[in-house]
Computed example of a mutant assay.
Amino acid sequence: MQSRTIYLIGPMGAGKSTIGRMLSRELNLPFLDTDQEVEDRCGADIPWIFDREGEDGFRQRETFVLESLQGAPAQVVATGGGIVMREKNRRLMIASGFVVFLQASVATQMQRTAKDKRRPLLQRPDREQVLADLYELREPLYREAADLVVCTDRGSPRQVIKEITEAVGMG
């Protein structure tokens, strides 16, 4: 039985939260979304945190969440798209879990985030360029941390979950 935490990493719109919830039910493991956890601990939403503390303040809060998970029972954790920007975060996830990079093209990200007003980095007219730039910057870091890469552009979340459960030896 999988005894390590499964971390889902990847760009915004890759399906980390959706697949994470479904995967946690499939494996009968608790689910945690780091963005939600940061909001709960802070008592404020992510746009407010970005506005008050900047991206660096938000990233520090993500690190605190990851640190608090060390030594905890296995669970499924959906992370924010930029969590890999800190080397410490990558090291924490690699050391304590099985890391899955949910890959999604910029076109898929555009489609899935089109109506989303809660993503501070996308509150600009050049959303597609922002997504492309973020992907170019972060993609090598996702790959560096990943034990498994799964494309979420086509196919159903069920297929993605099947791939993950087989890779962790529970499928």
Results as ranks from 00 to 15, higher is better:
residue 101 F to Q: 06
residue 76 V to N: 02
residue 98 F to I: 11
residue 82 G to V: 06
residue 77 V to T: 02
residue 98 F to N: 04
residue 103 Q to H: 15
residue 74 A to I: 01
residue 85 M to C: 08
residue 75 Q to S: 07
residue 88 K to A: 15
residue 74 A to S: 08
residue 76 V to F: 03
residue 77 V to I: 08
residue 94 I to P: 00
residue 92 L to N: 10
residue 102 L to R: 12
residue 75 Q to F: 00
residue 77 V to L: 02
residue 97 G to R: 07
residue 85 M to S: 13
residue 86 R to N: 11
residue 100 V to F: 12
residue 87 E to G: 12
residue 90 R to D: 08
residue 86 R to I: 03
residue 81 G to Y: 00
residue 95 A to K: 13
residue 96 S to F: 01
residue 74 A to M: 02
residue 79 T to W: 04
residue 77 V to F: 03
residue 84 V to Q: 06
residue 100 V to L: 13
residue 84 V to I: 14
residue 82 G to A: 08
residue 90 R to M: 11
residue 75 Q to W: 00
residue 103 Q to G: 03
residue 95 A to F: 07
residue 98 F to A: 11
residue 91 R to F: 05
residue 99 V to H: 10
residue 98 F to L: 09
residue 80 G to P: 03
residue 101 F to T: 07
residue 76 V to P: 02
residue 103 Q to V: 03
residue 93 M to R: 08
residue 91 R to C: 11
residue 101 F to K: 08
residue 81 G to P: 04
residue 79 T to S: 10
residue 96 S to L: 01
residue 101 F to E: 04
residue 83 I to T: 03
residue 88 K to Y: 02
residue 94 I to Q: 15
residue 102 L to F: 13
residue 100 V to N: 13
residue 96 S to H: 15
residue 98 F to K: 12
residue 90 R to A: 04
residue 82 G to T: 05
residue 92 L to G: 02
residue 99 V to L: 09
residue 101 F to H: 15
residue 79 T to Q: 05
residue 98 F to T: 13
residue 93 M to L: 03
residue 100 V to A: 11
residue 89 N to T: 12
residue 86 R to S: 11
residue 100 V to E: 10
residue 84 V to S: 03
